Amino acid sequence: MFAVTSTASASAHVKWFCAYDVAGQPLELSNVLCQDFEILIFIAAVGLLAGCFLEKTPLGEAMLRSMDRVTIGIRLHTEEMVRAFCFFFFIGVWTLGGILLTPELTSKSLLLPPLQFTIAICLLWRRTLPISALGIVILFGMAIHDYGMFHLADYPIFLGIAAYLALRGLQKKFFGIEPIDIMRYATAVTLMWASVEKWAYPQWSYPIFITHPSITFGFDPAFYMRAAGAVEFVLAFALLWTPLVRRCAAAILAGMFIAACLEFGKIDTIGHSGIIAVLFAVLADDRRVENDRRVPLAAPAGFCAALAATLFAYYVGHAALFNTTVL
Protein backbone atom coordinates (compact mmCIF):
# COMPACT_ATOMS: atom_id res chain seq x y z
CA MET A 1 0.00 0.00 0.00
CA PHE A 2 2.88 2.36 0.78
CA ALA A 3 4.35 1.90 -2.66
CA VAL A 4 1.17 2.72 -4.54
CA THR A 5 0.35 5.73 -2.37
CA SER A 6 3.80 7.19 -2.02
CA THR A 7 4.71 7.11 -5.69
CA ALA A 8 1.79 9.33 -6.65
CA SER A 9 3.88 12.46 -6.44
CA ALA A 10 6.97 10.69 -7.77
CA SER A 11 5.17 10.44 -11.10
CA ALA A 12 6.16 14.04 -11.77
CA HIS A 13 8.83 13.94 -14.49
CA VAL A 14 12.02 14.92 -12.70
CA LYS A 15 13.67 16.39 -15.82
CA TRP A 16 10.99 19.08 -15.89
CA PHE A 17 11.81 20.38 -12.42
CA CYS A 18 15.42 19.49 -11.52
CA ALA A 19 18.89 19.60 -13.04
CA TYR A 20 19.87 16.42 -14.87
CA ASP A 21 22.66 15.05 -17.01
CA VAL A 22 21.63 12.29 -19.42
CA ALA A 23 25.27 11.60 -20.29
CA GLY A 24 26.36 11.36 -16.65
CA GLN A 25 27.43 8.16 -14.92
CA PRO A 26 24.33 6.24 -13.73
CA LEU A 27 24.32 4.38 -10.45
CA GLU A 28 26.16 1.17 -11.24
CA LEU A 29 24.10 -2.01 -11.51
CA SER A 30 25.99 -3.53 -8.59
CA ASN A 31 24.49 -0.76 -6.45
CA VAL A 32 21.04 -0.85 -8.06
CA LEU A 33 20.60 -4.60 -7.59
CA CYS A 34 20.73 -4.45 -3.81
CA GLN A 35 18.69 -6.38 -1.25
CA ASP A 36 15.99 -3.69 -1.04
CA PHE A 37 15.63 -3.79 -4.83
CA GLU A 38 15.28 -7.57 -4.87
CA ILE A 39 12.64 -7.51 -2.12
CA LEU A 40 10.67 -4.79 -3.89
CA ILE A 41 10.77 -6.65 -7.20
CA PHE A 42 9.67 -9.86 -5.48
CA ILE A 43 6.70 -8.06 -3.88
CA ALA A 44 5.80 -6.51 -7.24
CA ALA A 45 5.92 -9.91 -8.97
CA VAL A 46 3.74 -11.48 -6.27
CA GLY A 47 1.22 -8.65 -6.60
CA LEU A 48 1.13 -9.12 -10.36
CA LEU A 49 0.61 -12.87 -9.94
CA ALA A 50 -2.23 -12.28 -7.46
CA GLY A 51 -3.96 -10.01 -9.95
CA CYS A 52 -3.67 -12.65 -12.67
CA PHE A 53 -5.23 -15.32 -10.43
CA LEU A 54 -7.98 -12.90 -9.37
CA GLU A 55 -8.89 -12.25 -12.99
CA LYS A 56 -9.88 -15.89 -13.48
CA THR A 57 -12.31 -15.88 -10.54
CA PRO A 58 -15.96 -14.78 -10.35
CA LEU A 59 -14.78 -11.72 -8.41
CA GLY A 60 -12.46 -10.80 -11.26
CA GLU A 61 -15.28 -11.09 -13.76
CA ALA A 62 -17.49 -8.95 -11.53
CA MET A 63 -14.76 -6.31 -11.37
CA LEU A 64 -14.55 -6.25 -15.17
CA ARG A 65 -18.30 -5.82 -15.50
CA SER A 66 -18.21 -2.98 -12.96
CA MET A 67 -15.43 -1.27 -14.90
CA ASP A 68 -17.46 -1.68 -18.09
CA ARG A 69 -20.43 0.10 -16.52
CA VAL A 70 -18.41 2.92 -14.94
CA THR A 71 -16.34 3.67 -18.05
CA ILE A 72 -18.99 3.32 -20.76
CA GLY A 73 -19.01 7.07 -21.40
CA ILE A 74 -15.26 7.13 -22.05
CA ARG A 75 -15.42 3.93 -24.11
CA LEU A 76 -18.05 5.33 -26.48
CA HIS A 77 -15.98 8.48 -27.02
CA THR A 78 -12.39 7.26 -26.65
CA GLU A 79 -11.19 8.85 -29.86
CA GLU A 80 -12.79 12.19 -29.00
CA MET A 81 -11.25 12.08 -25.52
CA VAL A 82 -7.75 11.40 -26.84
CA ARG A 83 -8.12 14.16 -29.40
CA ALA A 84 -9.35 16.60 -26.72
CA PHE A 85 -6.46 15.83 -24.36
CA CYS A 86 -3.96 16.14 -27.21
CA PHE A 87 -5.54 19.43 -28.27
CA PHE A 88 -5.11 20.71 -24.70
CA PHE A 89 -1.49 19.52 -24.70
CA PHE A 90 -0.46 21.14 -27.98
CA ILE A 91 -2.30 24.38 -27.30
CA GLY A 92 -0.60 24.36 -23.89
CA VAL A 93 2.95 23.93 -25.21
CA TRP A 94 2.21 26.38 -28.04
CA THR A 95 1.12 28.96 -25.47
CA LEU A 96 4.14 28.36 -23.23
CA GLY A 97 6.43 28.67 -26.24
CA GLY A 98 9.82 27.19 -27.01
CA ILE A 99 8.87 23.61 -26.05
CA LEU A 100 9.17 20.76 -28.53
CA LEU A 101 7.22 17.98 -26.81
CA THR A 102 8.04 18.15 -23.10
CA PRO A 103 9.26 21.01 -20.88
CA GLU A 104 12.95 20.03 -20.93
CA LEU A 105 12.99 19.67 -24.75
CA THR A 106 13.30 23.33 -25.71
CA SER A 107 13.88 24.81 -29.15
CA LYS A 108 14.14 28.23 -30.78
CA SER A 109 13.08 26.94 -34.19
CA LEU A 110 10.72 29.29 -36.01
CA LEU A 111 8.94 26.19 -37.34
CA LEU A 112 7.83 25.22 -33.85
CA PRO A 113 4.83 27.53 -33.12
CA PRO A 114 3.04 27.11 -36.48
CA LEU A 115 3.65 23.34 -36.43
CA GLN A 116 2.21 22.93 -32.93
CA PHE A 117 -0.76 25.12 -33.77
CA THR A 118 -1.41 23.14 -36.96
CA ILE A 119 -1.26 19.86 -35.02
CA ALA A 120 -3.83 21.20 -32.54
CA ILE A 121 -6.21 22.52 -35.21
CA CYS A 122 -6.07 19.32 -37.25
CA LEU A 123 -7.16 17.37 -34.17
CA LEU A 124 -10.62 18.92 -34.55
CA TRP A 125 -11.59 16.72 -37.52
CA ARG A 126 -11.08 13.00 -38.06
CA ARG A 127 -10.00 13.43 -41.68
CA THR A 128 -7.11 15.68 -40.68
CA LEU A 129 -5.81 13.44 -37.87
CA PRO A 130 -3.03 12.02 -40.12
CA ILE A 131 -1.71 15.59 -40.48
CA SER A 132 -1.55 15.91 -36.69
CA ALA A 133 0.19 12.55 -36.51
CA LEU A 134 2.76 13.63 -39.09
CA GLY A 135 3.37 16.83 -37.16
CA ILE A 136 4.03 14.87 -33.94
CA VAL A 137 6.52 12.64 -35.78
CA ILE A 138 8.28 15.76 -37.15
CA LEU A 139 8.53 17.22 -33.62
CA PHE A 140 9.90 13.90 -32.37
CA GLY A 141 12.50 13.93 -35.15
CA MET A 142 13.48 17.49 -34.28
CA ALA A 143 13.91 16.44 -30.65
CA ILE A 144 16.10 13.49 -31.65
CA HIS A 145 18.24 15.83 -33.75
CA ASP A 146 18.69 18.27 -30.85
CA TYR A 147 18.85 15.88 -27.89
CA GLY A 148 19.77 12.46 -29.22
CA MET A 149 18.02 9.11 -29.46
CA PHE A 150 18.86 8.06 -25.89
CA HIS A 151 17.10 11.07 -24.38
CA LEU A 152 14.06 10.52 -26.59
CA ALA A 153 13.86 6.90 -25.46
CA ASP A 154 11.95 8.49 -22.57
CA TYR A 155 9.08 9.38 -24.88
CA PRO A 156 7.98 6.67 -27.37
CA ILE A 157 4.45 7.37 -26.12
CA PHE A 158 4.36 10.30 -28.56
CA LEU A 159 4.97 7.96 -31.48
CA GLY A 160 2.25 5.66 -30.09
CA ILE A 161 -0.21 8.56 -29.94
CA ALA A 162 0.79 9.64 -33.45
CA ALA A 163 0.15 6.10 -34.73
CA TYR A 164 -3.23 6.03 -32.99
CA LEU A 165 -4.29 9.36 -34.51
CA ALA A 166 -3.14 8.40 -38.00
CA LEU A 167 -4.85 5.01 -37.94
CA ARG A 168 -8.07 6.45 -36.51
CA GLY A 169 -8.06 9.13 -39.18
CA LEU A 170 -7.56 6.56 -41.92
CA GLN A 171 -9.89 4.03 -40.23
CA LYS A 172 -7.19 1.37 -40.50
CA LYS A 173 -5.45 -1.17 -38.32
CA PHE A 174 -1.70 -1.79 -38.25
CA PHE A 175 -1.30 -5.32 -39.62
CA GLY A 176 -4.34 -6.38 -37.61
CA ILE A 177 -3.30 -4.53 -34.43
CA GLU A 178 -5.87 -2.11 -33.04
CA PRO A 179 -4.75 1.55 -32.83
CA ILE A 180 -5.41 1.66 -29.08
CA ASP A 181 -3.08 -1.31 -28.57
CA ILE A 182 -0.19 0.43 -30.35
CA MET A 183 -0.71 3.42 -28.07
CA ARG A 184 -0.87 1.11 -25.03
CA TYR A 185 2.35 -0.70 -25.96
CA ALA A 186 4.20 2.59 -26.46
CA THR A 187 2.99 3.84 -23.08
CA ALA A 188 4.17 0.67 -21.35
CA VAL A 189 7.63 0.96 -22.89
CA THR A 190 7.79 4.65 -21.93
CA LEU A 191 7.01 3.96 -18.29
CA MET A 192 9.32 0.95 -18.01
CA TRP A 193 12.20 3.05 -19.34
CA ALA A 194 11.35 5.88 -16.93
CA SER A 195 11.37 3.39 -14.06
CA VAL A 196 14.96 2.41 -14.80
CA GLU A 197 15.88 6.09 -14.78
CA LYS A 198 14.58 6.33 -11.20
CA TRP A 199 17.04 3.60 -10.20
CA ALA A 200 19.93 4.85 -12.33
CA TYR A 201 19.71 8.51 -11.27
CA PRO A 202 17.87 8.73 -7.93
CA GLN A 203 19.84 11.87 -7.06
CA TRP A 204 18.03 13.84 -9.75
CA SER A 205 14.87 13.72 -7.63
CA TYR A 206 16.44 14.67 -4.31
CA PRO A 207 15.88 18.45 -4.79
CA ILE A 208 12.15 17.72 -5.17
CA PHE A 209 12.17 16.08 -1.75
CA ILE A 210 13.52 19.31 -0.26
CA THR A 211 10.71 21.43 -1.72
CA HIS A 212 8.05 18.70 -1.29
CA PRO A 213 9.21 16.77 1.79
CA SER A 214 5.81 15.18 2.48
CA ILE A 215 5.91 12.97 -0.60
CA THR A 216 8.54 10.63 0.88
CA PHE A 217 6.37 9.84 3.94
CA GLY A 218 9.53 9.97 6.05
CA PHE A 219 11.30 7.20 4.14
CA ASP A 220 14.92 7.37 3.11
CA PRO A 221 15.09 9.08 -0.34
CA ALA A 222 17.18 6.26 -1.85
CA PHE A 223 14.69 3.61 -0.74
CA TYR A 224 11.79 5.78 -1.85
CA MET A 225 13.19 6.01 -5.38
CA ARG A 226 13.75 2.25 -5.54
CA ALA A 227 10.14 1.71 -4.44
CA ALA A 228 8.85 4.29 -6.93
CA GLY A 229 10.69 2.57 -9.76
CA ALA A 230 9.49 -0.90 -8.75
CA VAL A 231 5.84 0.17 -8.59
CA GLU A 232 6.01 2.08 -11.86
CA PHE A 233 7.72 -0.79 -13.67
CA VAL A 234 5.28 -3.48 -12.59
CA LEU A 235 2.29 -1.27 -13.44
CA ALA A 236 3.83 -0.44 -16.81
CA PHE A 237 4.36 -4.13 -17.55
CA ALA A 238 0.80 -4.85 -16.43
CA LEU A 239 -0.43 -2.59 -19.27
CA LEU A 240 0.80 -5.34 -21.62
CA TRP A 241 -1.13 -8.11 -19.89
CA THR A 242 -4.71 -9.38 -19.64
CA PRO A 243 -7.83 -7.13 -19.45
CA LEU A 244 -8.39 -6.89 -15.68
CA VAL A 245 -4.68 -6.59 -14.89
CA ARG A 246 -4.05 -3.86 -17.43
CA ARG A 247 -7.22 -1.93 -16.60
CA CYS A 248 -6.42 -1.94 -12.88
CA ALA A 249 -2.87 -0.83 -13.68
CA ALA A 250 -4.21 1.97 -15.88
CA ALA A 251 -6.52 3.14 -13.08
CA ILE A 252 -3.68 3.21 -10.53
CA LEU A 253 -1.28 4.95 -12.91
CA ALA A 254 -3.90 7.53 -13.86
CA GLY A 255 -4.46 8.26 -10.18
CA MET A 256 -0.71 8.66 -9.67
CA PHE A 257 -0.32 11.09 -12.56
CA ILE A 258 -3.37 13.12 -11.56
CA ALA A 259 -2.00 13.35 -8.01
CA ALA A 260 1.31 14.57 -9.45
CA CYS A 261 -0.54 17.23 -11.46
CA LEU A 262 -2.23 18.47 -8.28
CA GLU A 263 1.12 18.54 -6.48
CA PHE A 264 3.27 20.11 -9.18
CA GLY A 265 0.87 22.36 -11.05
CA LYS A 266 0.49 23.66 -14.58
CA ILE A 267 3.68 22.29 -16.18
CA ASP A 268 3.00 18.78 -14.94
CA THR A 269 -0.66 18.98 -15.96
CA ILE A 270 0.18 19.96 -19.53
CA GLY A 271 3.11 17.57 -19.81
CA HIS A 272 1.21 14.53 -18.58
CA SER A 273 -2.14 15.20 -20.28
CA GLY A 274 -1.33 12.83 -23.14
CA ILE A 275 -0.41 9.88 -20.95
CA ILE A 276 -3.48 10.43 -18.76
CA ALA A 277 -5.64 10.25 -21.89
CA VAL A 278 -4.02 6.95 -22.90
CA LEU A 279 -4.54 5.51 -19.43
CA PHE A 280 -8.22 6.50 -19.46
CA ALA A 281 -8.56 4.84 -22.87
CA VAL A 282 -6.99 1.61 -21.57
CA LEU A 283 -9.16 1.69 -18.46
CA ALA A 284 -12.30 1.97 -20.59
CA ASP A 285 -11.31 -0.69 -23.14
CA ASP A 286 -13.74 -3.59 -22.57
CA ARG A 287 -12.35 -6.05 -25.10
CA ARG A 288 -11.82 -9.63 -23.95
CA VAL A 289 -9.58 -12.30 -25.43
CA GLU A 290 -11.46 -15.54 -25.90
CA ASN A 291 -9.52 -18.64 -24.84
CA ASP A 292 -6.63 -16.53 -23.59
CA ARG A 293 -3.83 -19.03 -22.99
CA ARG A 294 -1.68 -16.76 -20.84
CA VAL A 295 -1.48 -18.60 -17.54
CA PRO A 296 -0.98 -16.57 -14.34
CA LEU A 297 2.49 -18.00 -13.74
CA ALA A 298 3.62 -16.53 -17.06
CA ALA A 299 3.08 -12.99 -15.74
CA PRO A 300 5.93 -12.87 -13.19
CA ALA A 301 8.20 -14.66 -15.67
CA GLY A 302 7.39 -12.10 -18.34
CA PHE A 303 7.79 -9.30 -15.81
CA CYS A 304 11.28 -10.48 -14.84
CA ALA A 305 12.26 -10.92 -18.49
CA ALA A 306 11.04 -7.40 -19.32
CA LEU A 307 12.90 -6.02 -16.31
CA ALA A 308 16.16 -7.71 -17.31
CA ALA A 309 15.80 -6.62 -20.94
CA THR A 310 15.06 -2.99 -20.03
CA LEU A 311 17.93 -2.78 -17.55
CA PHE A 312 20.25 -4.31 -20.14
CA ALA A 313 19.11 -1.97 -22.91
CA TYR A 314 19.41 1.10 -20.68
CA TYR A 315 22.81 0.38 -19.19
CA VAL A 316 24.51 -1.18 -22.22
CA GLY A 317 23.07 1.49 -24.51
CA HIS A 318 24.22 4.24 -22.15
CA ALA A 319 27.70 2.74 -21.86
CA ALA A 320 28.01 2.46 -25.65
CA LEU A 321 26.90 6.05 -26.27
CA PHE A 322 28.51 7.84 -23.34
CA ASN A 323 31.39 5.54 -22.32
CA THR A 324 30.05 5.00 -18.81
CA THR A 325 30.44 2.04 -16.44
CA VAL A 326 27.77 -0.66 -16.19
CA LEU A 327 28.82 -2.73 -13.14
Rank of each mutant, 00 (worst) to 15 (best):
I119D: 10
I119C: 07
I121Y: 14
C122W: 07
L123A: 08
W125C: 09
R126F: 00
R127I: 04
R127D: 02
T128W: 11
L129E: 03
L129H: 07
P130F: 00
P130K: 02
I131S: 01
S132V: 06
A133W: 00
A133G: 11
L134W: 11
G135Y: 10
V137R: 13
V137Q: 06
I138F: 11
L139T: 13
F140H: 13
G141L: 13
M142P: 13
M142A: 15
A143S: 14
A143Y: 04
A143V: 04
A143T: 05
I144K: 04
I144V: 15
H145V: 03
G148I: 01
M149H: 07
M149W: 15
M149L: 15
F150V: 03
F150Q: 03
L152C: 00
L152S: 00
L152K: 01
A153L: 15
A153T: 12
D154L: 05
D154T: 05
P156H: 08
I157F: 09
I157L: 14
F158V: 07
F158D: 07
F158N: 09
L159K: 09
I161H: 04
A162E: 06
Y164I: 07
Y164C: 09
Y164F: 15
L165K: 12
L165P: 10
L165A: 10
A166W: 00
L167N: 01
R168D: 01
R168N: 06
G169W: 00
G169L: 00
L170Y: 00
Q171M: 00
K172V: 02
F174K: 00
F175A: 01
F175M: 01
I180C: 03
D181C: 06
I182V: 15
R184T: 11
R184L: 08
Y185E: 04
A186K: 08
T187H: 09
T187K: 06
T187M: 15
A188T: 09
A188K: 10
L191K: 02
W193F: 09
W193R: 07
A194Q: 03
A194I: 02
S195C: 14
S195W: 08
S195Q: 09
K198M: 13
Q203T: 13
Q203G: 12
W204G: 13
S205F: 14
Y206M: 11
P207F: 06
P207A: 05
P207N: 03
I210N: 08
H212W: 08
H212P: 10
S214L: 13
I215P: 09
T216Y: 05
F217E: 07
D220I: 12
D220V: 11
A222E: 12
F223V: 11
F223A: 10
M225I: 08
R226C: 08
A227V: 12
A227S: 14
A228R: 06
A228C: 13
G229L: 05
G229M: 04
G229S: 04
A230Y: 11
V231Q: 14
E232G: 09
E232S: 12
L235G: 00
A238P: 02
L239W: 06
L240K: 06
L240E: 05
T242W: 15
P243N: 08
P243A: 08
P243R: 09
L244E: 03
V245F: 09
R246Q: 12
R247D: 04
R247L: 02
R247T: 03
C248P: 01
C248K: 02
C248M: 10
A249S: 04
A250N: 05
A250D: 05
I252Q: 02
I252R: 02
I252V: 15
F257Q: 06
I258T: 10
I258W: 15
I258G: 07
A259C: 04
A260P: 08
A260F: 07
